[in-house]
């Protein structure tokens, strides 16, 4: 593996890990809220949440490119604070990755919190547990396998993400050129052996992640 490949691998792993780390608290809050709210607009919120998963990556990428670009309020604010651009940076592809993977982590979390059920929430309240203690002592221990499932899915999906990362990141080596973009570059340069090597590496990591997920499910069962 040459240094460029290693950099791409490190970047992919860093992006996947950071995506999961940022998504975990979001998935906890959103998943719990969606599982317990009686708000009438819940179906709309769920539909909006699924949207990034269903739209073509190029459409999501374009929306983010415009929404986070130098002409946008978010892009200008980012530039004022950091001095750099949000698009075509690691932070930019991280924001994109978090948005794209949001449904992958929130959905399993929501299902896991729904499975806790109203009866156990009632039991927790009648045991004198405050909402926060009920969450940490009862809901979280029961729902964590769902959260772990979402985390593994988001991690593996981020490793393979292509379209959005390319649109928002522009494949800058060492900054936004992830492993899946490096494979594309190799193919463009007719280096099929190199592309194949990287593809196998990506396949291996994803396989390990998914196997872990099934082992987790079996232990739980």
């Amino acid at each position: 593996m040459n240094p460029a490949d290693l950099t791409a691998l490190q970047l992919s792993l860093a992006l996947a890990a950071a995506t999961v780390a940022l998504l975990l608290p979001l998935a906890l809050l959103l998943g719990h809220w969606l599982a317990t709210t009686r708000w009438r607009g819940r179906a709309l919120a769920e539909a909006l949440l699924l949207l990034p998963l269903l739209l073509p990556p190029t459409v999501v990428g374009l929306a983010l490119l415009i929404g986070m670009g130098p002409g946008s309020a978010i892009g200008r604010s980012w530039q004022a604070i950091t001095g750099g651009q949000l698009v075509f940076s690691f932070a930019g592809i991280l924001v994109a990755s978090v948005l794209v993977n949001l449904p992958l982590m929130v959905q399993p979390a929501q299902r896991a919190f729904e499975a806790v059920g109203d009866d156990l929430r009632a039991a927790a309240a009648s045991c004198g547990l405050s909402p926060l203690r009920a969450f940490t002592k009862v809901e979280l221990p029961l729902a964590w396998p769902g959260l772990a499932t979402g985390a593994v899915l988001a991690f593996a999906h981020t490793l393979g993400e292509f379209g959005v990362v390319l649109m928002v990141g522009g494949a800058i080596p060492g900054e936004t050129a992830t492993l899946s973009l490096a494979i594309y570059d190799r193919v463009q340069a007719f280096d099929m052996a190199g592309a194949g090597r990287l593809a196998l590496l990506l396949l291996g990591i994803s396989l390990i992640a998914i196997t872990l997920l099934f082992l987790l499910g079996r232990r739980r069962g």
Binding site: D119, L120, A122, A123, A124, S126, V138, P141, L142
Partner: peptide, 13 residues
């Protein structure tokens, strides 16, 4: 309140 739910409502974990 001491509440006993139908089926017990025990915490499974």
């Amino acid at each position: 309140v001491g509440l006993v739910l139908q089926g017990g409502g025990l915490f499974p974990h």
